[in-house]
Design a protein around this nucleic acid. Sequence first.
RNA 1: GGCCCGGUGGCAGAGUGGUUAUGCAGCGGUUUGCAAAACCGUGUACAUCGGUUCAAUUCCGGUCCGGGCCUCCA
Length: 453
Amino acid sequence: MNVLRLYNTLSGKKEDFKPIDPAHVRVYACGPTVYGRIHVGNARPIVVFDVLVRLLRLRHAKVTYVRNITDVDDKINLRAAERGISINDLCEETIKTFHNDTARLGSFDPDIEPRATHHIDEMQAMITTLIEKGHAYEADGHVLFQVSSMDTYGALSQRSMDDMIAGARVEVAPYKREAADFILWKPSNDDQPGWDSPWGRGRPGWHIECSAMAKAYLGEVFDIHAGGLDLIFPHHENEIAQSCCAHDSKHMAHYWLHNGFVTMNDEKMSKSLGNIISVTDASNKYRGETLRAALLSAHYRAPLDLSHNAMRDARNGLDRLYRAVGEFAAVPDRVDEEFAACLLDDLNTPAALARLHELAGLANKGKAGACEALKSSAAVLGLLQQTANEWARTDETVTKDDIDDTAIDVLIMARKQARANRDFAKADEIRDQLDKADIILEDNVDGTTWRRR
RNA sequence: GGCCCGGUGGCAGAGUGGUUAUGCAGCGGUUUGCAAAACCGUGUACAUCGGUUCAAUUCCGGUCCGGGCCUCCA
């Protein structure tokens, strides 16, 4: 198998992936802040990096995939207060819907899903180290990271300190020594969640949790750190600053991967713009697998416009692939080489899907092994794991169910009888009746199958 | 204002210094009681203006247009 190439934000280039330990690859991805349901934009990194991990598992004996849950954040406090429920209840409820959503998207769970509030000690230890090493200072109940103490600050986002000062749009808090300094720890009042610390009762800043949890589960330096494009600055830049300065290391992770945005009418889908569609809502309207296929239909770094048309195209594509694959069971070691080559080239999922369609064509022509190759290749994308019949009979809108399977079977039997009697008028009447209920009949050599429109 | 990334056929979306992406939609055909599916055939797309080159959609530069980050955001 060829080498895996990944676009590394650190270098701005595709690079050969060389793991620190080929027998154990370590990956960290930033997970959700649990104050509300995730939207389809949030679903993109979940699906894309799930594919990355599946691909890595094909090639490496052990992969540890960590995706955190941020359960301490001022947005959580605010939302809990708005809804008049406890912070804990809000977090538990949101985590539940999150897990429901990732399951519908067909994504595997990460190996470890650490929660920020379970790692306050580790964060405090790291902050203490940063103060001792002269990278952080205490001011007015806050602890701040002093950006000027790190020569290479800004390397990931490729911006200089001068650029940042020139572009600064934020008012500088009075306790900061320098405008770009960021918070490691901040004081909490009695209404806010807080933990005792050497700097008084308080709570962590946004970035320190990822540094602390990545270290706890993956070590000081690991292979891949992934997340959305909008996390490059400041979040990932600051994680690097914290981790590298605390550990005296050159790198936090060797490869930094960032996915592009899902757009709505070519504009970024984001909570602050309010143009969001939640995964829960989307998967009531479309099957999770359709959404997953749509999310993989563009290269992960390119923008992806998720219109109704895009969803329809994804569904049509899956229809064709499922028809080709039939009732075949997956064979794990039959991944098509051309297909794999597409994914190895910086996770080129659109090219990989194109190859799946070629395999479907070959399978339809009866080419030996094509079905197995199609099924086991698709598994790397987390697609096509049902049988064709299971897929065909699930309505796109799961809740709609005005005609049940037995009623359909009864009508099909009646039509079969009519056809045997060469009463084609009657047969066509039944076809039309089912068609009106969005049931499409297909007569094959070995009988009649049906699917929902 | 600073920094970054894009503009491919009706739509979506890869890719390439000279040769078919792929899917959907369309058109023609084979097949079918009808239909669907499948198969076969079918489209001189690469924002614009210059430059380099025997040859550029592909490399370089300008222009126009779009998007993103610089503030919570995947």
